[in-house]
Simulated assay, not measured.
Amino acid sequence: SLPYSNMRLCVALPGENAECLCHGLMLVFEHIGGVPPVIVMDNATGAGRRNAKGEVTLTGVFSAFVAHYRLEVRFCNPYSGNEKGSVENAVGFLRRNLMVPPMHAESYGQLSRFMLERCDGLAASSYCPRLPGVPVAEVFDEERAALMPLPSTAFDPVRWESRTADKYGLVDIDSNRYLAGPDSARSKVLAAIRWDTVTLASPATGELLAEYPRQYGRSRNVEDPALVLPRLAVKPRAWRESSIRPDVPDDIRAWLDSMDEKTLRESLKAIGDACRAAGFDPAMQACGEILRSNRDMGLHADSLTPIALRMRDGEWEYPGGIEEPDLSGYDRFITGTDDGGEER
């Protein structure tokens, strides 16, 4: 809420952590085209924590955000709603006028865009309390002059943490476990935690190990099928109880179930190689292509990986859809006959 004009803005985010807070403020700053020089905040844990003496310590991500945008930040006193009356009123106003009926969107980004557009519409149709009869949008145009310019470089609200993977290669982040891969078992992993993603990398080489959508909640295992498949190839009997089994299409899952242990081991290894080269979805499409061609054969990396790469690159009709070359000219030259078979 910008109290001078009574401009009210809101965005949608999945949590109240520092990464979500900074990302949401960035969306608002970009939308209004500037940065307020002073921000008065409630006692949000994503921004900082207050000790027994009343001193506030900023979180690492929010502290970097404040420095990047050159902000002055003030915090309200606990249980003092009068210190933030403007934004408390904005909460009720936007709930009544913006979120009834509930809004629907495909993603948080799309929902935030809808909300900001509706906020602009409400600003054009509502009036400033200080100037009766004057729309909030007109007063806000004057208020823009007091905003600081946006930085030339975008800020990346990311929290870096070093974690040790367990014996399965799983890394615990905010009570959820992300698979870094069996090669990372019991070793250090560098995690880049953003509001929507968790990226795992090797601290020694910087090699990207895995990237996942960030989970909100507790006690979830998040695994990349491409990292699980090599582990299953070593122990193929674990295939039927594996966590990625539901991610495999029904026809391919039934096909793998029908294989003997040796063929299943080779097939799982081939799928793992194809996943590393082209990704999980193209690898599954390639498996479906081979399944349609010959159900009796197993999967081999030398045939599966090239097909998966073609699937990834958009050659969906491989191999049957590729037009064969016209060799009739060679036939006429060698045999000395025309298309009708008559001698020339």
Rank of each mutant, 00 (worst) to 15 (best):
R50M: 15
I334Y: 15
T337A: 01
Y168Q: 13
C128D: 12
L2I: 12
D141M: 06
T335Q: 11
L21C: 04
R194H: 13
L58M: 12
L131W: 13
R237F: 10
P249Q: 06
S242H: 08
G48N: 09
G181L: 06
P135N: 09
D260F: 07
L150F: 05
N97W: 10
E323I: 10
E241R: 14
P157L: 07
T199G: 00
R113K: 11
S5I: 03
I39P: 09
P78K: 02
L179I: 12
T305W: 02
E317V: 05
D120C: 09
T45Q: 09
R70Y: 02
R245M: 09
V189T: 10
E19Q: 15
D302K: 13
V100T: 14
E317S: 11
L94W: 03
T45D: 13
T337D: 01
P132R: 12
L71W: 02
A192G: 12
L116T: 09
S5M: 04
K269T: 02
D251Q: 12
D326M: 03
K53W: 09
P102R: 12
P151Q: 04
G24N: 05
A90H: 01
M26Q: 14
V87R: 05
D281P: 00
Y318F: 14
D296I: 01
A47C: 09
G320K: 10
K269V: 00
L9W: 10
I307A: 00
R214C: 08
K53R: 13
E117L: 11
A277N: 02
E142S: 11
S258F: 00
V100M: 11
L291T: 00
